[in-house]
Design a protein around this nucleic acid. Structure first.
Lengths: 130, 130
DNA sequence: CCGTATCCCTGACGATACTG
DNA sequence: CAGTATCGTCAGGGATACGG
């Protein structure tokens, strides 16, 4: 994995960042909004444009990202910067407060990678004995 | 705070364990069920009876605890032990897998205690400027 | 490109009532 | 005491359509 502390603007977000069974999907944080955790992971490496966030979030429509980002902005977790250009460009970035959540998300991801298989195995054993 | 690693069966659960603004309420984990985090915190100190869990969970009806515990049992996070007595007694306890989540919940709680005031302040400033 | 507004459907959760 | 069953309500989130 690349160094996420440096900001490589050319690095595209992995479209498959959040599989249905992705550890980060299985254990999201809720800080006023359940998508916040995923947004933080997307912004971890630096500012991202609105359109960039839609892909890894599997947001076919812009509604969910829009609502999530507005809520996170109200909570002081992200900043929104609009550039007066053509075509329009808007960038979202994490605030210092938002960055404090990164270690927690890392811990959650580490847990999932270690223990989620056992959990899913137990669920399968109990749910579908067949 | 008492030592939660030892199992003091006489220690009652604090009815106000989960205030509406309790850090643990503001940032619950989801492992197949959003109440799981609170249940884990209730069982952290050792086995608890069904009725004991209802109070701190603010569950006026037994429906939510029942569903949550069944889901967590399927996922291998808790065990259910029924004693053939009169009156009936049933105890729930964390499995080793369930215990692996405790550090994450502690981290979440620590984050909330440190940063939640700032988040709520930002929300208030943006939401109700009045 | 960057959103917002609306409709609609589903799943979470509370209340009520009932059983072993 | 320890649940289950059923109903009603409501917010979350997807689809569609439209505006800056």
């Amino acid at each position: 994995m690349a160094d996420a502390t440096a900001h490589d603007r050319s690095a595209p977000l992995d479209p498959d960042m959040f599989h249905p069974l992705c550890p980060s999907s299985a254990m999201p944080f809720r800080v006023g909004d359940k998508w916040s955790g995923m947004v933080i992971r997307c912004l971890q490496g630096g500012p991202r444009r609105f359109g960039e966030l839609r892909v890894p979030l599997k947001a076919v429509t812009p509604k969910v990202p829009s609502e999530t980002l507005r809520a996170m902005e109200r909570d002081g977790l992200v900043t929104r910067t609009a550039y007066d250009e053509n075509p329009p460009r808007v960038e979202y970035a994490l605030t210092p407060l938002g960055r404090t959540l990164i270690p927690l998300l890392d811990a959650a991801r580490a847990w999932s990678e270690t223990h989620l298989p056992a959990l899913l195995a137990a669920r399968r054993a109990a749910g579908q004995p067949a």
